[in-house]
Simulated assay, not measured.
Amino acid sequence: MPAFKFTLNGKAQRIETEADRPLLEVLREDLGLIGVRYGCGEGQCRACTVLLDGKPVPSCVTPVRLAEGKSVLTVEGLAVNGKLHPVQQAFLEEGALQCGYCTSGMMLTAVALLKTTPHPTEQQVAEGMNNNLCRCCCYPSIVTAVRLAAKLSALNTQGAGHAG
């Protein structure tokens, strides 16, 4: 069985498994990261989103072989030293969740969006988050939370700073 090496939430990993096995399955079943959620299994809802070298990907349709030599970030890797990432803090403050099932995928997509667009307009947030589905229809709160996260991120870079 082939072995795959990648960095997961800042730590080196090596896993022996089938090359075409979904990254979602490896993360949840082999590595115990339950923040990565199975939604549709077709890459359409994005509840399973992780960042692969900083880009949001649906882990349910991403074979583990594509993670080889790359960095994988899950929601479990966002907080640093017990301090919430600005996106996590903003989602909490804005109540940008209801059932919470889509939240980890939403947060990781927001992190990627804010990396490329640090001060997004409401329209840019709506477009950037467009592929992530929320069954509870918390979209207005999510947009508000992402814009708040941009402000919190800017404050963190002026002050002590925060990884992510």
Rank of each mutant, 00 (worst) to 15 (best):
A110F: 00
G105C: 12
I34L: 11
A112I: 05
E93N: 05
K11L: 08
T116G: 11
G35Y: 12
V57E: 03
R37F: 12
L8Q: 08
T74G: 09
G161H: 08
G77P: 03
P56V: 09
G35K: 06
A126S: 11
Q98C: 09
N156I: 03
V64M: 00
R65N: 00
A163R: 09
E122P: 05
V61E: 02
C136I: 12
L73D: 07
E25A: 05
V80A: 07
G100W: 14
P22K: 03
Q158I: 11
Q98A: 10
L148N: 10
A150H: 01
L84S: 09
T116H: 05
L97K: 06
G77N: 06
L73C: 04
Q44L: 07
K55V: 14
G77Y: 11
G95V: 13
S104Y: 09
V87E: 04
C48Y: 06
G159V: 09
P63F: 00
C40K: 01
S153H: 00
C134E: 14
N81A: 15
K11Q: 14
F6D: 04
Y139S: 05
L97Y: 15
T157D: 14
A150I: 14
G128F: 00
S104M: 05
A47S: 15
I15V: 15
L152T: 12
F6A: 00
Q124E: 15
L148V: 11
D53L: 04
K115P: 01
L33P: 09
R135F: 11
E76I: 08
C60P: 05
V50N: 06
V26R: 04
V61L: 01
A19N: 03
G32N: 12
R46M: 15
K11A: 15
E68L: 02
C138L: 10
Q88V: 10
E122Q: 09
R65W: 00
Q89F: 01
L133T: 10
R37V: 13
L31T: 03
G35I: 07
D53H: 06
Q89H: 02
K83G: 07
E76Y: 10
T62D: 02
K83M: 11
P56R: 10
L108P: 06
K5M: 02
Q158D: 13
G69D: 06
P140G: 01
T121N: 01
C137N: 09
V75N: 10
L33W: 10
C99M: 11
Y38R: 08
G161S: 08
Q44M: 05
L108D: 09
G82P: 07
G159K: 08
D20H: 06
S59F: 07
A126W: 00
K115E: 15
E68V: 01
N131E: 13
E68F: 03
T116I: 02
C99T: 12
L92I: 14
E18V: 13
K151I: 14
